[in-house]
């Protein structure tokens, strides 16, 4: 059972969920390149320009771990990364658990993504200008790259460390993506977990994903926000267990 974290956090976000499955599954947790304790030098701007680069990593990692017919649990953007990974190597995973997924964040005609193009561009601009986020990151930005210390070490926050430069690019890859077409030919069994009040992945998006995937179940949690694995871990665990079978 492979757990993949979403944009903005690292594998720590599974700390209330993954243990619930350790008795029955071999659980694999990892940090995407640029997040947590990953090797920042492994980051290649071209490879990670789109989500496909991250999907390649998942395939490589799962293959290396000997995963076969496993369960992929992906939160937020990693839900779509899991879909892409399955398409590259369907033998790795039989089932996909997609928590708060979104194949496209920008509205497009009848499709409701939750954001206008302008809003997403504003987000990208904000990230580019460092006006948003850790204020401590501003000093090294102003002082220049040469003097920039390791971001995670400088901050008082010990969780969800991200390299700000990589985070910006990850945001671009995430929020400008359109993977709706990739959902169509997924034949694996899928669980779509949707929060009741999620500003990042609104309910319409969850329903769209559920509709488009051939073999999917949709569970709408009572939990609000975008991170039910942290704000409502029991409810999340229960939904996953129901999907993977508790026997």
């Amino acid at each position: 059972m492979v757990f993949a974290h979403g944009f903005g956090c690292d594998q720590n976000m599974w700390r209330y969920v993954a243990p619930a499955f350790e008795d029955r599954f071999r659980t694999v947790l990892f940090d995407h390149v640029g997040a947590g304790a990953s090797d920042l030098s492994a980051y290649e701007p071209t490879k990670y320009e789109t989500l496909a680069g991250y999907a390649d990593d998942v395939v490589e990692l799962a293959t290396a771990m000997g995963v076969k017919g496993g369960i992929f649990v992906g939160h937020s953007v990693s839900a779509m990364i899991g879909v892409l990974a399955w398409k590259k190597a369907p033998e790795l995973f039989d089932r996909l658990v997609l928590i708060c997924p979104s194949p496209r964040y920008v509205d497009d005609g009848d499709y409701v993504g939750g954001f206008t193009q302008a809003q997403i561009e504003e987000l990208i601009d904000f990230l580019d200008s460092n006006y948003l986020g850790w204020s401590q990151a501003m000093a090294p930005a102003i002082m220049g790259n040469a003097e920039r210390p390791e971001f995670g070490q400088e901050l008082t926050n010990s969780f969800c460390r991200t390299d700000p430069e990589i985070a910006k690019r990850f945001a671009r890859a995430t929020f400008l993506s359109d993977n709706r077409a990739d959902l169509v030919d997924v034949t694996a069994r899928c669980l779509v977990i949707q929060c009741s009040d999620d500003i990042v992945a609104p309910r319409e998006v969850g329903e769209y994903v559920h509709r488009t995937l051939r073999h999917s179940e949709l569970v709408v949690l009572n939990a609000s926000g975008h991170c039910p694995n942290l704000s409502a871990p029991e409810e999340t665990v229960a939904a996953i267990k129901a999907f993977v079978g508790d026997d």
């Binding site: 979403g6 944009f7 903005g8 956090c9 976000m13 937020s76 954001f115 809003q119 504003e122 987000l123 601009d125 904000f126 990230l127 948003l132 986020g133 969780f159 969800c160 991200t162 929020f175 999620d198 500003i199 990042v200 926000g225 975008h226 991170c227 942290l230 704000s231």
Partner: peptide, 13 residues
């Protein structure tokens, strides 16, 4: 809007 996304993806967790 950017703040909301950032809050939900970074600071809420």
């Amino acid at each position: 809007v950017p703040g909301k996304i950032y809050y939900e993806t970074h600071f809420a967790p």
